[in-house]
Design a protein around this nucleic acid. Structure first.
Ligand SMILES: [Fe+3]
Ligand SMILES: [Fe+3]
Length: 908
DNA sequence: AATAAAAAAAAA
């Protein structure tokens, strides 16, 4: 936007003295509190917040108080005053009668920045003082126009400039120098966040009434009460507890070492713990967090996980922990997109279950949740502190000084992974101890967590020095491993488990037969496909071939509505999950088959005997194999876990098409063909594998860059490799471009421009129902679970929203758009932010209607959502005829040849 | 042209 350059009017405008400038309207829209008082309230609140900071943040906190004292200086301006208090202004000075507010600049944040740049003394006149930047951004985002002159007409001329200057000088004498310069953007964001939070609290009329505080109350006391009522006073941690006292069991070596090594390092930093599951990484991290908090080095924690479900689970585990370490029974705050729905799933909440302390409700708005002393949530909540989104710096302030624990780091892709690495290094600048928990990482990814992406060689040296041995070969890097900024520590590995590996190509029919054979031999078989369509085809083939009711079989993937997926997961948790003592042990079936997609790679704690899996990158294969022999169990039907990896042979192909066909076109959309090929080459050499002993070797070998060779295969691989690298770099670049630091000007809402995850196949969520009775603005919906709910275009009903959320499925948008434009029916508008069309399901025919048209989707409770008009996935035509392996599976041929890593696909 | 799973949303 460009401002009109107004001609010089006859004389200078008369300014209203700053003492008569208002900051806020009261409930009736009348002028409320004046600017000067609001500034004092905000500064005093900031002073109280400053007392809550950990020691390493106090210097920055000292700068926030003067910043807060001038944040709304831009309200001393004709534009702002006329916009909100026109009548009162005209009463004071009639010359404003014919001046509309639009004649001036009205954005007080922008005006404030002009004034501060003009009136704050600085060494470098071309550098925008930090306070000015903070004033500019204090409402969440910054305008992109250049700052006009403070004494210019848009801001009311010299007289108004003088008023702002006077108020600035008064505040500066009272609250401290404004001349500081903070070069670190993260540290500036921290101060900004602290100012904005002070502003939010200082603007709360229940603490600071519009009529002003009663004379007997001093501002400092009111601020103290406000901060404490908001629940921002840091809870006292009970010192001196041993690991046993906190968790009621004795620690493994690694659990002792980890916390001790961090305490010994003594400074903020990134600390990585790589260990297999079952070694108690969570407790190791929590105990480290306890030590750091008890010593006062950090205050509070944030525990970040990849999914909402895993966050919920950790959240439940934290209550006993907090009860042990914290005197005043502060519960942990759950923070993710649908955390608020939990209130309607768990009735205990209504009775105040975790709402121990008053003030908890202050944290309800999502942006504030991170300010709570103890937070568990999706990483995404924390990542929004580094993304170019509105109010990102409020989250930065929320995380500052905390122990930030980030779990399951191995599970993120290049986009989110890059964001996490950046955030980790930034957090160390604002007093955080960052704890990274992961299964094995490649040396490259590990090194990336240390000072500006440490060279891999340097990290290797640290590891080898620490272990006092020479580490020339990747084999000898130990696992589990603790890595800190300048140190490394090995820990004795758990006893290894030998796996038998088969790498084969099979038709669907043979796969089904094979699985059935194993199940009949009493084995619990897990089949993991790379795509939903393949999983469904396997499921059909197995159902058709198996003897009636011989053993339980099931299918699990994400194309089920939430309630059904949860039901299937619960059922299989009873069958294959961990059982307490002898309870349920007899529920483990005597042979069974569960067919699934990647949903079981994580967080579903099932234990299989035999695994059949499509070829996937080594990291994923290892995750999938982690589902075998997972629990301690006697009486298994087999002595050793066996894994059958399904994969065609690309080695003889002399062109790209041949290679892609060998891996399966669909698989190449999910995983980069180069990685699949490397994985196959690495795994085909092994008939057995020892886990965890061989993990590092397998992983490093997969991603190792090979020396030049001149065979046809090497050349094809080389092409695929450069595409893989290009794609990886594109993801990283995309992430870097979305950082708040990428441009000086954060703009946009949280979800708009910058996402925490990247997807190149956009999806739309749909609500699946059996019946609708609608009058337009109101409707009665019959859900798949047979429940009936009333929905209404005007009345929100969180309990119903919670129910509806369990009936959603996400579907690629382009598949839905074939049936017309997608819209949320008006009666659902109060329930979903996102566009949410309705799919109408006919139970007896399984058919699905959208926008009144019959679609090619069908749904059943056993198979989930599937398409009927699509040619069945590769190999299915041979599913019911016995083939010799000579007649190899036919892969999709009706697509014209296309490169799955075609540049256009990632030319964002 | 077509692939898993996953997340996201009130201020002063
Ligand atoms: Fe403001
Ligand atoms: Fe304000």
């Amino acid at each position: 936007m460009i401002f009109p350059i107004s001609k010089k009017t006859k004389g200078e405008l008369t300014a209203i003295p700053y003492t008569k400038c208002y900051a806020k309207t009261d409930k009736n829209g009348k002028p409320g509190i004046c600017v000067e008082s609001h500034l004092r309230h905000t500064a005093e609140v900031c002073r109280i917040l400053r007392q809550q900071l950990t020691e390493n943040l106090t210097l920055l906190g000292d700068l926030a108080i003067p910043s807060a004292s001038v944040h709304d200086i831009g309200k001393v301006s004709p534009g702002f005053q006329l916009k909100y208090f026109r009548d009162a202004i005209i009463k004071q000075i009639s010359e404003y009668r014919d001046k509309p507010a639009g004649h001036f600049l009205t954005d007080h944040a922008h005006i404030g920045a002009c004034a501060l740049w003009a009136h704050v003394n600085k060494e470098d006149p071309f550098q925008c003082p930090t306070v000015a930047q903070i004033a500019a951004m204090h409402h969440g985002s910054v305008r992109t126009e250049p700052l006009p002159k403070d004494s210019g007409e848009l801001l009311g001329g010299a007289a108004w400039s003088e008023e702002r200057k006077n108020l600035i000088k008064i505040m500066e004498t009272e609250y401290g120098r404004l001349t500081f310069h903070v070069p670190s953007i993260v540290q500036r964001d921290f101060i900004s966040g602290m100012v904005t939070i002070s502003d939010w609290i200082g603007s709360d009329e229940s603490f600071f009434p519009p009529a002003g505080l009663p004379p007997e109350v001093n501002i400092n006391t009111a601020a103290q009460m406000a901060v404490s009522a908001c629940g921002l006073i840091k809870p006292a941690i009970i010192p001196g507890l041993s690991f046993e006292e906190v968790f009621e069991f004795s620690p493994y070596d690694i659990q002792k070492q980890f916390g001790a090594s961090i305490m010994n390092y003594g400074k903020p930093g990134v600390f990585v713990l790589e260990a297999p599951m079952g070694m108690g990484k969570t407790e190791a991290a929590l105990y480290a967090a306890y030590l750091l908090m008890a010593s006062g080095k950090n205050s509070g924690f944030f525990f970040g996980l990849p999914t909402r479900l895993t966050s919920d689970r950790i959240h439940e585990r934290l209550d006993p922990f907090l009860k042990k370490i914290c005197e005043n029974k502060t519960g942990a705050r759950l923070s993710h997109g649908t955390a608020w729905l939990k209130a309607f799933w768990h009735s205990s909440f209504e009775k105040g279950g975790e709402d121990f302390k008053p003030g908890n409700s202050w944290f309800n708005p999502r942006k504030r949740a991170l300010l709570h002393p103890f937070v568990v949530g999706t990483v995404d909540q924390a990542l929004m502190s580094v993304l170019r989104v509105k109010h990102h710096f409020v989250r930065t302030f929320g995380l500052a000084g905390k122990v930030v624990i980030l779990d399951e780091i191995h599970s993120y892709d290049g986009y989110t992974g890059t964001l996490i690495e950046t955030m980790a290094s930034q957090l160390t600048q604002i007093g955080c101890s960052v704890i990274i928990l992961s299964a094995t990482l490649t040396k490259k990814r590990l090194s990336a967590f240390f000072k500006e992406s440490q060279p891999v060689k340097e990290r290797e040296n640290i590891i080898s020095q620490a272990l006092d041995e020479s580490f020339n070969s990747i084999d000898s890097v130990p696992y589990p491993l603790i890595s800190g900024p300048e140190y490394a520590l090995a820990s004795p590995p758990p006893k290894g488990q030998e796996y038998k590996i088969h790498l084969e190509e099979m038709s669907y029919f043979k796969i089904a037969k094979h699985a059935i054979d194993k199940a009949i031999q009493s084995q619990c078989v897990l089949c993991i496909a790379n795509t939903v369509a393949t999983a469904q085809t396997w499921f059909d083939a197995i159902s058709a071939e198996m003897p009636d009711d011989a053993f339980p079989i099931g299918l699990l993937h994400s194309k089920f509505p939430g309630f059904q997926r949860a039901a299937i997961e619960d059922l299989w948790m009873i069958r294959l999950g961990k059982h307490k003592k002898d309870e349920h042990e007899n529920l483990r079936p005597n042979g069974c088959i569960l067919v699934a997609t990647q949903v079981v790679e994580q967080s579903v704690d099932i234990d299989a005997d035999y695994l059949i899996t499509e070829l996937a990158p080594t990291d994923m294969l290892l995750q999938r194999m982690g589902r075998q022999f997972r629990h301690d169990r006697k009486n298994r039907p087999c002595t050793i876990p066996e894994t059958l990896i399904l994969c065609g042979n690309p080695d003889q192909s002399d062109n790209l098409d041949g290679v892609l066909d060998a891996f399966g076109r669909s698989n190449c959309h999910v995983y980069a063909p180069w990685v699949l090929w490397r994985t196959r080459d690495v795994w085909k050499k092994h008939h057995t594998v020892n886990i965890p002993d061989d993990i590092r070797t397998l992983l490093e070998a997969t991603y190792e860059e090979l020396s030049k060779q001149f065979s046809k295969k090497a050349q094809l691989m080389d092409d695929l490799h450069s595409k893989f690298v290009q794609h990886k770099n594109a993801l990283a670049d995309k992430a870097m471009g979305n950082l708040s630091t990428a441009t000086a000007m954060p703009v946009g809402e949280d979800h708009e421009t910058c996402a925490t995850r990247y997807s190149d196949l956009p999806t739309t969520q749909v609500l699946l129902v059996q019946d609708i009775n609608s009058t337009g603005n109101e409707a009665q919906l019959t859900l798949l679970s047979e429940e009936r709910v009333m929905v209404n275009a005007v009345r929100p009903d969180p309990a119903v929203t919670a129910q509806l959320h369990l009936n959603l499925i996400s579907i690629p948008s382009w598949l839905l758009q074939r049936y017309g434009s997608l819209e949320t029916p008006s009666f659902l508008k109060k329930h979903f932010f996102e566009t949410t069309p309705i799919l109408l399901w006919n139970e007896s025919s399984a058919e699905i209607t959208l926008n009144g048209q019959l679609t090619d989707f069908q749904y059943t409770n056993l198979k989930g959502l599937f398409r009927t008009s699509v040619p069945e996935p590769p190999g299915s035509n041979s599913a019911y005829q016995e083939d010799d392996s000579e007649d190899i599976t036919v892969y999709l041929t009706d697509f014209e040849s296309m490169d799955p890593f075609d540049k256009s696909k990632f030319d964002w």
